[in-house]
Structure formats: C-alpha cells, structure tokens
Amino acid sequence: MRVMVIVKATKDSEASVMPNKELLEQMGKFNQQLIEAGVMLDGAGLKATSHAARVRFEGDRRTVIDGPFTETKELIAGYWLWQVKNLEEAVEWLKRCPHPHPGTPTEVEIRPLFEPSDFEAQP
C-alpha cells in the first residue's frame, strides 16, 4: 500500500526559517535509508504559506485567498509518499525519522492512499 506521510508546519517553517545543517544531514541520511529500502516513492518540503494561495468554492463563486494562512497547526510543511506493506511498517519507518522540528513537539501523520482495489470493492 501507499501512504502519504505529512509533516505539519510550525512557527519557524511558516517564517521560512530553513532547517539547520545538522537536521538537513540527518534528514538526508534518513531519506537515503528509505530509498535503499525501496520504500520512498516521492517527497518534498513545502514553502511557507506566504507563497501560497487558496481558491474558495461557494455556490458558483470562486474567491482567491492569498497566503499566509494563520492556523499553523492545520498547515503542512512537507510530505513523503511511501510504498509499504501495511500501516505498521510505515509507523516503524516514521519512528526512525529525525525530529523534523527540533525543540518543538510536533506530530507527523500517516495517511493511506486509496488503491484501485478500494474502488472495485464498491457495488
């Protein structure tokens, strides 16, 4: 199965503070492990929402809202796509990930993707 692993934003990530060299190195090592284990499909860090935009849908109206957005905890700062056998394997991999925001408690979320078989199962 595939999972999306979602790293949440923090005050720092929203302020475009770049991660320090040590964290970048640790993350690079972790990414290399994921690649060599054949788990990593894709991944990227996201720029702060000051670079972002939203389109609001209301009836027939489309309203464009420019970033930055305020509800930091609801925002995401990066993602991976992993190919794993099950959710447990994704959890074990994620536990091996370096702390993405050292000094700030944070949660990283694992969300399984719909697979073609999920649609076929429906009547």
Binding site: A37, K85, N86, E88, E89, V91, E92, W93, R96
Partner: peptide
C-alpha cells in the same frame, strides 16, 4: 506493540 508492528520491525531490519 502488536504482532504486526513487530513484524514491521522485522521487515525493516
């Protein structure tokens, strides 16, 4: 940890 979680460690390590 469930059996599946320990199996996941096995798969990784």
């Amino acid at each position: 940890p469930t059996h599946r979680a320990i199996e996941a460690v096995w798969r990784i390590e």
